[in-house]
Amino acid sequence: MPTSTESVSKLYGRIADLENQRLAEHPMEREITLRAIRKELGPIPGKRIADIGGGPGKIAFALADDGYDVDLVDLSPDLIQLAQAEQDERKSAGVKPLLRSIAVGNALDKSGLAEGLYDAVLLLGPLYHLLEEPERASAVTNALHLAKPNGGLVFVAFISIDAHLRDVAMRNPGKVVDLKEFYTKYLIDGRYEKSEPGLGQTVQSFHTRPDDIRAFFASNFADSLELLELRSTEGILGGGLDATLAKSSDEVVQVWVDLMFDGFSTKEQHLGCADHLLATLRRK
């Protein structure tokens, strides 16, 4: 069954405030993601970035503050409303730079952005919720078309199956017994499609593994995209182990980011520690 984008949009409407705070509460994901993007793009003001599925714009605004020219698109009107509120607040306070544009849009459709224009295209959320491989391939294809030919970058984030199992073990370990049939299938295909009473709706999510990410790009994009690296955006601090850092000074956070980014986040033996895996690709 294909993904219900209406259901995904409704989910983020319900958790909009939590999503707006999530990266503040998990600084390692935020900072390693930003550093990975900056490493490849270089410190060149004016480079164009399309952030597709960027939610309330926390990554987009941080990159705009670096001097990049950023367009933000998200499926959820509620998250886009939060991004627009921050944009308006910045305008009122005279804070610049601002995002170039903010709009509701779907990674599975043409976003309305100009093709072949962007130095980097970010898909840091959409593939979390696309249940079918052709849908995931379609989202990446649309991002590929936005990226500049011969060197435009595409950043694609995934959720790790290992992360979900850790979460279950910490919160409700009996779940894998009570839902044995569900989890037997889940561990094969990564589809988490289940009614969640606490949210009042069905959650549609896709989780995966490093080797499956590599296989996905090799089978669908071997002629058009080069996979540069696969990186854990938490280093070895997945499972919420970075939460205390949210209360630490910027100096302490950056020391830990240095440690995780350089020493742990791309090492194969540590990728299983991730909550999120970030693939960096270059358009051929």
Score class of each variant (00 low, 15 high):
Leu124Ala: 10
Asp78Lys: 13
Ala62Met: 11
Gly53Asp: 03
Gly105Tyr: 03
Glu132Gln: 13
Pro43Leu: 09
Pro97Gln: 07
Ala103Gln: 14
Leu108Lys: 11
Asp65Ala: 15
Ala62Thr: 05
Val95Phe: 10
Ala24Phe: 14
Glu132Asn: 06
Pro43Met: 08
Pro27Trp: 00
Asp65Trp: 08
Pro134Leu: 08
Ala50Leu: 05
Asp88Ile: 05
Leu23Lys: 06
Gly42Gln: 04
Val95Asn: 11
Val104Cys: 15
Leu23Cys: 00
Val70Gly: 07
Asn106Ala: 08
Leu113Cys: 11
Ala83Arg: 00
Glu132Val: 07
Arg136Tyr: 01
Asp65Cys: 08
Pro126His: 03
Tyr118Lys: 10
Val73Ser: 12
Ala62Tyr: 02
Ala36Gln: 08
Ala114Gly: 07
Pro97Asn: 09
Ile102Met: 00
Leu23Gln: 07
Asp119Leu: 12
Ile59Trp: 02
Gly94Ser: 02
Asp65Ile: 14
Leu41Asn: 02
Ala103Tyr: 04
His26Thr: 12
Asn106Leu: 06
Arg100Cys: 05
Arg48Pro: 03
Gly46Thr: 07
Ser76Pro: 13
Ala24Gln: 15
Asp88Leu: 14
Ala107Val: 06
Pro126Val: 07
Glu135Val: 09
Leu144Lys: 01
Asp71Ser: 15
Ser76Arg: 06
Leu144Met: 07
Pro97Val: 02
Met28Val: 01
Leu113Glu: 05
Pro126Gly: 08
Thr141Asn: 08
Asp109Pro: 07
Gln84Val: 02
Lys39Ala: 14
Arg30Met: 05
Leu124His: 13
Gly57Phe: 09
Asp88Lys: 15
Ala120Glu: 06
Ile44Met: 10
Gln81Gly: 15
Gln87Cys: 00
Asn106Trp: 05
Val70Met: 03
Arg90Asn: 12
Gly105His: 09
Asp74Thr: 12
Lys47Trp: 03
Val140Trp: 02
Ala24Ile: 11
Ala139Met: 04
Ser101Trp: 02
Phe61Asp: 11
Ile49Trp: 09
Arg48Ala: 13
